[in-house]
Structure formats: C-alpha cells, structure tokens
C-alpha cells in the first residue's frame, strides 16, 4: 500500500491544487475532480484521460519546464505549473474544419 505519501502543491490553469508526490499528474487531477485535460487542437472539443498507460496520447498537457507530456505517466512534483492542452489556431493546424 502507498502509505505515508507526501502531499505536494501544484497549479492547474492557475488554480492551486494538492496531490501526492510521484503519482501521475492525471491521477492527481482526477482526484481533484478535473476531467478535461486538453482541448482538441483543431476542433477545441474537450478531452480527458482515456487509456491511463501511455498508449493513446489523449491526456497530453503542458508542464512548465517540461513541455507537452502524457499526464498519465508523468509523476507529480512539488510546485508544478500545469496547463491544459490548447486548441491551436487554424493557421497552425492548416486543416479546414467541417
């Protein structure tokens, strides 16, 4: 059992939260009731955790100093600044939306 786990502080989209050191960022966010981890780059549709073991890339978000990471595999550290994945401008994606 994972007893005696340290509690650490981090922020998600500027909102202060706490979680356990070393647990995946996605687990800490789910425990805090946060399901939307990312907006689809083209459509902007909300996306959340899907496979939880690094296969699907759906939970990717941005961690200051690390860039875009899979939040289901990235351990939570004290003081992390986490931002949800953003919809990109159409000039960047270059694709016409229906």
């Amino acid at each position: 059992m994972k007893s005696n786990r340290d509690t650490v502080s981090f922020t998600f989209n500027g909102k202060p939260l706490t979680g356990y050191r070393g647990e995946p960022i996605a687990a800490a966010l789910l425990a805090a009731g946060i399901r939307t981890l990312r907006k689809h780059e083209e459509s902007g549709n909300p996306r959340g955790l899907y496979c939880a073991i690094g296969h699907c890339m759906e939970c990717r978000l941005s961690v200051q100093g690390k860039g875009i990471v899979r939040s289901c595999l990235t351990p939570l550290e004290d003081g992390m600044t986490v931002l949800e994945g953003q919809q990109l401008a159409n000039e960047i994606t270059g694709r016409k939306l229906p």
Binding site: Y50, C51, H55, C56, M57, E58, R60
Partner: peptide, 8 residues
C-alpha cells in the same frame, strides 16, 4: 494517422 499512431 494521429498522435496515437493508430494504437487506439
């Protein structure tokens, strides 16, 4: 052809 390379 997306980010998951078809795994899903």
């Amino acid at each position: 052809m997306g980010a998951c390379q078809g795994r899903v």
